[in-house]
Write a protein that binds this DNA or RNA. Structure first.
Lengths: 204, 204
DNA sequence: ACGGCGTTGCACAGTAGTGTGCAACTCGGG
DNA sequence: CCCGAGTTGCACACTACTGTGCAACGCCGT
């Protein structure tokens, strides 16, 4: 058979995984990376990639599915049972931080001309829950901003990317980046800097 | 002559201007927009665009030059003679806001695989002056953030984009967006929300 | 109404990417 | 050892884009 649709060998599996890993990195660097670039970066020939994924779309789609799942998981797990809005945001950001690169991929692709139909839709639940959390915080007076909750959600999103870029450029140490980003996000939501720092220090 | 290198007619000039305007919008929507897309959007045939600009690169380069100039102008004009860091940031953001879409284009292109060599370099002076302003504010205690000044500059940048996206999506009214964005940026720099609001209200 | 600039439409060559078919190779497990 | 899944290399057709040449056309001022 030309393609190994039911492939299950050890190296086939390893290759598939490696292709996905490399594709994430490569597409992060350049959302228009070609199949050839990805293949070479994975130490494999283009034809082999088509053995694992029928098309570029399919490859990206697999990546998107994994990213959405990982993010939704991390977020819901982190916020489970937490009622205080500020603490919920803190926990959410801290939990999302380690998987933020995947988030970044999603946004980079979604901003682009409909690479994969419906990234935004698949991401909507996560966004919505964040918006309602922010709204609640604004209503309760825990947060304060001239921006409405949905816009504040955009701002938080972009702030994470900014800090990630700063880490990439060596402006912020990777170990403290998550905490710093969290404090920054809380501060932007109107939480006093002192309270934000304190809050982040309390979270394990 | 095939091309009108010295073209000076009224409609030729008008076309050139319109092509540039439309190209800005089109490239903002999709940094990979083809010459055909741009031409059609400008109500012109592809061949005509090549009459005004010898290549895609040249067209984009013209756009970049205009953007950098407009931004540097607005920023230096707004901050001229202002010593208080918070007020300087407020004036800067308010002045940059109306031309922020051009800024956005620059970043979108610069993030991409070297579309135009040296966008970052041409943008560096503007960034540097912003960084030193933030640094001064942090030193004087006007600002407060766990992030170093350069990272904070990234954050401010991205926050502007976030608010712009919010405006695009109808989440924030265009008239108040500039003021809201300014308050948000100041807040993120650790300026208390009340002081930030007050400050923005004072600026004409 | 005429000349010329700007524009159009079309054709062309060159480049780069996608997805597929096929034969030959390699490597590991039974 | 040898069978087969997985891989490679090459060839191919197709699509989309760039940049150029050229002839024809339209429009404006003089």
């Amino acid at each position: 058979m030309t393609a190994m649709t039911t492939g299950n060998t050890s190296r086939a599996d390893a290759n598939r995984r490696r292709i996905l890993d490399v594709a994430l990195a490569e597409l992060l660097r350049d959302p228009d990376a070609s199949m050839d670039q990805i293949a070479r970066a994975a130490g494999v020939v283009r034809r082999t990639v088509y053995g694992h994924f029928p098309s570029r779309e399919a490859l990206i789609s697999t990546l998107v599915d994994g990213a959405v799942e990982a993010l939704a998981d991390a977020d819901s797990r982190a916020r489970h049972g937490v009622t205080d809005p500020a603490e919920a945001v803190a926990r959410s950001v801290l939990a999302l931080w380690p998987v933020a690169d995947r988030y970044r991929l999603l946004i980079a692709l979604a901003q682009r001309t409909v690479t994969v139909q419906g990234i935004r839709e698949r991401l909507a639940p996560l966004r919505d829950s964040k918006v309602s959390l922010l709204q609640r915080g604004l209503d309760e007076g825990a947060f304060s901003s001239p921006l409405p909750a949905p816009a504040l959600a955009y701002v938080h999103e972009q702030m994470l990317f900014a800090v990630m870029e700063a880490v990439n450029d060596g402006l912020v140490a990777a170990e403290e980046a998550g905490r710093s980003a969290t404090v920054a996000v809380l501060t932007a939501a109107g939480v006093p800097a002192s309270r934000a720092t304190e809050l982040v220090a309390e979270v394990p």
